[in-house]
Amino acid sequence: MSKVQQMDNPELNLENLFEIKSKVENNTATSKDYEKLDYFLSAVNMSGYILNNIKERGYGTYQSYINERNSLSLLTRKDNLSEGFILGIITECISILTNFLTSNN
């Protein structure tokens, strides 16, 4: 049982997924939300997939990625491509989980 499950006991359902999706799209998601999403991905054998990609792109932690997304100036941003890349990964993971839930229901 992972740490996230012990703390929050998140339940994989469409409501939670849509909540995380809207948070990601509006850039209000916290590192806990990302951890929760990463935990949900274990249902489709993709546990740790988001964090691995975040680390691959040189961010290290969820929080550093969140900070990068929150930086306002375009000129001071580190890497727009990486930021978009991780955002794409997260949204695609959410859509995979949504498809998984709808197909199971």
Binding site: L81, F85, G88, I89, C93
Partner: peptide, 9 residues
């Protein structure tokens, strides 16, 4: 980047 991420996933 978003498209690349989606494709990779």
């Amino acid at each position: 980047g978003i498209l690349l991420g989606k494709i990779k996933t």
